[in-house]
Simulated scan of single mutants.
Amino acid sequence: MLSNTTATAVIAHAADDLRIESITVSAPAPDEAQIEIAYGGICGSDLHYWMHGAAGESILKAPMILGHEIVGVVRSAAADGSGPIAGTHVAVHPATPGGTGARYPKESPNLSPGCTYLGSAARYPHTEGAFASTVNLPARMLRAVPAGLSLRDAALAEPAAVAWHAVSRAGEVSGKRVMVIGAGPIGALSVAVLKRAGASEIIAVDMFDKPLEIAAASGATSTLKADDLEAIAAVEADVVIEASGNYRGLASAIRGARRGGRIVMVGLLPSGEQPALISLAITRELELVGSFRFNDEIDEVLLALADGSLDLAAIITHEFDVAHALEAFAVAKDSAQSGKVLLKFT
Rank of each mutant, 00 (worst) to 15 (best):
A7K: 05
A7G: 12
T8G: 12
V25Y: 03
E36N: 14
G41W: 02
C43R: 11
G44N: 11
G56L: 08
S58P: 06
L60V: 04
V74T: 08
A79D: 15
G81K: 13
S82A: 14
P84F: 04
H93F: 08
A102G: 04
L111D: 09
T116R: 14
T127M: 12
E128Y: 11
A139C: 05
R140F: 14
G148F: 05
V162L: 04
S168P: 01
R169Y: 03
G171K: 07
E172D: 15
A204F: 02
M207E: 09
K210Y: 15
S222F: 01
L224Q: 00
D228R: 09
I232Y: 11
S244W: 00
G245R: 08
G245T: 08
N246W: 05
G249E: 06
A251Y: 03
P270L: 07
P270R: 00
Q274H: 09
P275A: 08
I282W: 10
V289S: 08
F292E: 02
L302N: 06
G308Q: 11
L310C: 05
T317W: 06
H318M: 09
E319G: 01
V322W: 00
V322F: 03
A323R: 14
H324R: 15
L326W: 03
F329R: 03
A332M: 01
D334Q: 13
V341F: 00
